[in-house]
Design a binder for these strands. Structure first.
Lengths: 335, 335
DNA sequence: CTTGGTTTGTACAACGTTGTAAGCAACGAT
DNA sequence: ATCGTTGCTTACAACGTTGTACAAACCAAG
């Protein structure tokens, strides 16, 4: 049922290598030979055994994308862009879901089908630069901010600047009691720290005192956490007139909690998020957010990986910053 | 940098095969030999070359999941469950995004890294039973309703019954002018046809006349399509008092359009969806929907594939029906 | 000390592919 | 006629692994 080069060769009456040459588009094959071989290939419905080809070539044509969770919209959207960008380089993408735990991430970084993939695009939550330094040379591009100045190529968004801009926008709407949702003290919370820094910087710019009671932690960044954090803020009586949520799913949860509390958005409380996921364009109200250029992030990551695969392994790691913009919608409208 | 069995063997002073035996947990290796080999493996940080192993064994330990689009929440959630279920069988999942076009789907079905995967879980939009019949024996499990009684194992939800139940629920709320959003006349619209059949059956059960003007087509099933279809329904003056959307993203779009039109949900118009995606639990209002058991779907698919891989290839294809239930929330609350 | 069975280790050949080197025509230039 | 050149094809070896067959070492019992 499943045929090999040898079968095709016998049928076409040529050597195995000639068939291989036809399959790989080698130039110097006479037209009639090529035709005979192609006919044989078609008749037998031959397709090459990639394991064998990989073994021989040392390349697989597969790269892996490792993300914490697939059903977080940000990662799903990112995955789509990575798949598209990788296809342009002739790569298939194997998507790995790490769950975000340190052990699984370590395994993903070092292990995913070793020798089955040419390289890895990795969005770590738990791993540190030290963890990664211990890994031997799997070509790797990191996404996100967890590992600063680590041993690998890196694509980031300027989290501090972006958070500062969106917070400044809330200030510009005349809000003064601006809450933040999503702070984290764990080592996994690198994004949280940077976004919090942007938030405090914007408050300082505006001469607004930092009020610890307005900063709500969120263990994860799911909708349920955002709703819980918002409820908590409301219950403590601090009465914010705006909230900056560290990502969009938190913000969607916050919108829900505000709705349940009978508060109007943006009239009573303005809400802003981060990520610009599709949901936020249709939520009620639509969501103002920081829009990182996800397509660019994916494209840069794939290109860094492509370079890394051909470059001298001693080439120092590069860090590229992807652009972002503010997407201002109903929940914190433009002035 | 990257070591082979041979390197480990030399270092441990044994033959290549003995190392292989240790790696594969073969029983009859003396304890001290095993220890020496394991030490050598650790020192060299050896890891097997899977391409070579696959070539030798004819199995890769990788299965593929092919879905139309990754950033459709339903597929993202499904993907997560498939990855989890596959992990329990020791499989890695390669996720392929087909885009839903017939050509790409054919390629996915026949081609994805041929010999790189042991089997395929496939959620086709465009392919027909005939298309699939032409493919030689890639072990395959189909998801969804596109290919009835096709040549492959199949996991489905009872779309007609589910659509009938949720429509009946709208009837039970006293609604009489119940619209449907998401109909499709293309061959890709198999789900649409089944859900429409359930809708009309429920209307008939209740003695409500079918009104063609209440049925709005949607070219794709994204939020934007749902919003556009809802706007269209409102603009024609047919004034529905309920809408059954053929999936949740359509419903979220419809909620948005109703909000923009100043109509209250569920007071003026009740809304129901299909899929039970995470978004619908936090939307404003929260969404009543059909909840297919996605975890079960994933688990059944993986098990069917596992059986298919060990079974006699002549075993007739099986079709399993995954359960569903109604998740009734604010947009069309329980009575 | 042989016999016979079990345990432990080895050598070799495959899996299907492609790179290398080389062979064999046919050709024009010497 | 002889010598490269060029075009086309082939045989062979390798990629790193594991299954098969077998040899060596061990052990217990006769």
């Amino acid at each position: 049922m499943r045929h090999r080069l040898k079968d095709v060769a016998e049928r076409a009456g040529v050597s195995v290598k000639t068939v291989s040459n036809v399959v790989n588009g080698y130039q110097h094959v006479r037209a009639d030979t090529r035709a005979r071989v192609e006919a044989a290939i078609a008749e037998l419905n031959y397709r090459p055994n990639l394991s064998a080809r990989n073994l021989r070539k040392g390349r697989t044509g597969v790269i892996a994308l490792a993300v914490p969770e697939l059903d977080i919209p940000y990662f799903a959207e990112l995955a789509r862009h990575v798949v598209t960008a990788a296809a342009e380089h002739g790569w298939t993408v194997l998507i790995d879901q790490t769950g975000g735990g340190p052990e699984q991430e370590r395994k993903a970084a070092s292990g995913i089908g070793d020798h089955m993939i040419d390289g890895l695009i990795f969005s770590p939550l738990a791993l540190t630069a030290d963890d990664l330094a211990g890994l031997d040379g799997m070509p790797m591009v990191l996404l996100g901010e967890r590992v600063d100045h680590g041993p690998a190529d890196h694509v980031v968004v300027d989290n501090v600047a972006a958070a500062r801009e969106i917070t400044a926008h809330l200030v510009g709407l005349g809000r003064r009691r601006i809450a933040a949702i999503g702070s984290q003290r764990t080592p996994e919370g690198a994004s949280a720290r940077l976004r919090l820094a942007g938030y405090t910087a914007a408050l300082a710019d505006a001469g607004i005192a930092y009020d610890e009671r307005l900063v709500a932690p969120a263990p994860a960044w799911h909708r349920a956490d955002g709703a819980a954090a918002m409820r908590h803020l409301l219950s403590t009586g601090v009465r914010p007139d705006a909230v900056f949520c560290f990502n969009d799913t938190l913000a969607l949860g916050a919108l829900r909690a505000l709705h349940e509390a009978g508060l109007r958005v943006p009239d009573d409380v303005a809400v802003a998020g981060f990520d610009d996921i599709e949901d936020g364009r249709f939520s009620i109200p639509t969501l103002s957010t920081v829009a990182p250029d996800k397509e660019r992030i994916a494209r840069l990551a794939v290109e860094l990986l492509a370079n890394r695969l051909t470059a001298d392994p001693e080439t120092p790691p590069r860090e590229l910053v992807a652009p972002h913009r503010l997407a201002l919608r109903e929940s914190a409208p433009p002035r």
